Simulated assay, not measured.
Amino acid sequence: MTGIQHQALGMTSHPEAAPGQDRFTAETERFRRELLAHCYRMVGSAQDAEDLVQETYLRAWRSYSGFEGRASIRSWLYTIATNVCLTALKPRPIRVLPSGLTGPYDGLDRPPSPVAPAEILGTTTAAVKSGLQRARARLDELEPEPAELLEPADPRARALLDGYIAAFERSDVGLLEQVLRVDATLEATPFRDWQSGRATCLHVLDAYVLGTPGDWRMIATTANGHPSAVVYHRDADGVLRADGVVVLTPTATGIARVIKFHDPALVTTFGFPDALMR
């Protein structure tokens, strides 16, 4: 933690306080990036997420002396962060992923459609509730069993991430087919449509997303304990511009879920540049 961050957390520089500060930093700082991803997932704004993570650390520091270790330090921080985010969301609607709005889109005749500002579905409340029920039931069917999920440090998880990155950078739909599960799901913000099933996912990615080799560049990272990548897309001037972050759910049989957050601000929030020259 920097001196500025210490000041923001209300920490003093008195010698007698240093041991507690150092211990707090050592135990909590390694979770900052995943807490940032967690807060972003809840509030949908990179700037707000940064502020909420800072508030999380402030609250954690203030109550650190009373932390008894009944839960892991990570779980304790997540609880604080979730409460901070829920408080911030009270005056406004909660942001949800496409799978939280309706069932998967099975059509193959058009690209995914974005949600217009102040618009959700342009339909009735009853239709939204019905779609939610179908979507949740479908997700329950597709959710991997806990035993199938790979730990972030598992070499197989990194191999799947590397394969996904290579597929995009080479515009290779065949390589994508190798890393996705048959029942894989694909969703992205701020689009209202999401896809279920490898064949459908591959069609959408091949037809509307992959482009030509060199259009995409991805750099491996982690988010919320999942293998992830910051994403760059080549613009008309040939510059690779920040595009967002993709988060994967790896299992023993392949990638079960792909979530793409289209938000260039996330790339710099994760500590990466907003553009790459090559």
Rank of each mutant, 00 (worst) to 15 (best):
Q5W: 05
H6C: 13
L9P: 07
L9D: 06
G10H: 06
M11L: 07
M11E: 01
S13C: 08
A17P: 00
P19G: 00
G20Y: 12
T25N: 05
T25F: 09
A26V: 10
A26S: 10
E27F: 02
T28N: 04
E29M: 13
F31G: 06
R32Q: 08
R33S: 14
R33M: 08
E34V: 11
L36Y: 14
L36K: 01
A37R: 03
A37D: 08
H38R: 10
C39Y: 09
C39M: 12
C39S: 11
C39D: 10
R41G: 01
R41H: 08
V43E: 03
G44F: 11
G44M: 03
S45N: 01
A46F: 04
A46L: 02
A46K: 06
Q47V: 09
Q47E: 14
D48C: 15
D48I: 15
A49D: 00
A49G: 00
A49T: 07
A49S: 04
E50S: 10
D51V: 00
D51I: 05
D51K: 04
L52Q: 08
L52I: 04
V53T: 05
V53K: 01
V53I: 11
Q54F: 01
L58W: 06
L58H: 07
L58R: 08
L58Y: 07
R59Q: 15
W61F: 03
R62V: 05
S63Y: 13
S63W: 13
S63R: 15
Y64I: 04
Y64A: 08
S65P: 02
S65F: 08
S65D: 07
S65N: 11
F67V: 02
S72L: 01
S72F: 05
S72Y: 02
S72V: 02
I73K: 06
R74C: 06
W76A: 03
W76V: 01
Y78I: 13
Y78V: 14
I80C: 02
I80Q: 05
I80E: 08
A81I: 11
C85M: 10
L86I: 12
L86K: 14
T87A: 15
K90T: 10
K90Q: 14
P91E: 13
P91W: 14
P93I: 12
I94Q: 14
I94D: 03
V96Q: 04
V96L: 11
L97C: 12
P98W: 07
P98E: 08
P98M: 03
S99C: 01
G103E: 08
G103T: 06
G103H: 01
P104K: 04
L108F: 02
D109I: 02
P114Y: 00
